[in-house]
Computed example of a mutant assay.
Amino acid sequence: MSLERAVRAKIAGKRDPQQDKEAQEWIETILGKKFPAGVAYEDYLRDGVVLCELMNKLQPGSIPKVNTSGGDFKMMENINKFQAACKAYGVADLDTFQTADLWERKDIAQVTTTLFALGRASYKHPEFNGPYLGPKPADECKRDFSEEQLKAGQSIIGLQAGSNKGATQSGQNIGAGRKILLGK
């Protein structure tokens, strides 16, 4: 098997049809319209129009001009606008897909991951009142320790500090084996 085929198989293996379905249903609910029958999930999202409409529903005016016609570059521009709007909305840069992932259908699983990240980011926007996609992100749990508690923690020696009941690595011969010289 060629390396390229192996890489494609690994990427395709990451894809979860159930997550694709959840993301599609979330988009349909927010936009109030169903995906056309017989059109694949990635094919319907490919030109970026639906993604821009979704972003404008979540945060009105975030993408003022959506290209509905034009060449390939105009459609890829929609995807780029969606990605920029996602980042501005609170989606982490590492959670956003690359334009080629959708346009060339290289990694649709990453596109779905971005949609789930967008769904999680929507929890942090009080102006949006659902539906949400994915689990609610955890809130910060800030702790305040007294000076006495902090000093008490300094006297504790963890096992990684070398007090592992006298265990050492002496006697282990990792790497080069013993060299035995034979007599002449």
Rank of each mutant, 00 (worst) to 15 (best):
G183Y: 10
M76S: 08
F73Q: 13
V7G: 05
Q160R: 07
K142H: 15
Y44G: 00
G48E: 04
L150C: 02
I11Y: 09
N80T: 09
R5K: 13
Q154M: 11
D107N: 13
F145L: 15
Q154F: 04
A161V: 10
R8F: 12
K33Y: 09
N164R: 04
R5N: 05
E25C: 10
K10I: 11
G90Q: 02
E77D: 13
I11L: 15
F128L: 03
L94Y: 15
F35M: 05
L102S: 00
L102T: 00
G158S: 14
Y123M: 06
S155E: 14
G175V: 06
K81W: 03
A167M: 10
E53I: 01
L102H: 00
S146L: 12
Q149N: 02
E42M: 08
G13R: 10
G183D: 12
Q83A: 05
A84Y: 09
S62A: 08
D20F: 14
A40K: 12
P60R: 03
A84V: 05
F128G: 05
S122M: 06
Q149Y: 09
D139F: 06
M55D: 00
C52Q: 01
D47N: 14
Y123S: 04
I27W: 03
G171E: 10
T68W: 06
G90I: 07
A121F: 10
V49A: 07
S163Y: 07
G71L: 12
I156F: 11
E42D: 12
G32R: 05
Q98V: 07
G32K: 01
L54K: 01
M55C: 06
R105T: 01
R46W: 06
G171D: 08
W103T: 00
Y44E: 07
F73N: 12
K124C: 04
I157Q: 14
L182K: 10
I157P: 05
L159T: 10
A88M: 11
P64V: 03
K14A: 08
Q18S: 14
G13E: 13
N80Q: 13
D72L: 13
G32V: 03
P126R: 13
N80Y: 10
G119A: 08
E4H: 05
N56K: 07
Q160A: 09
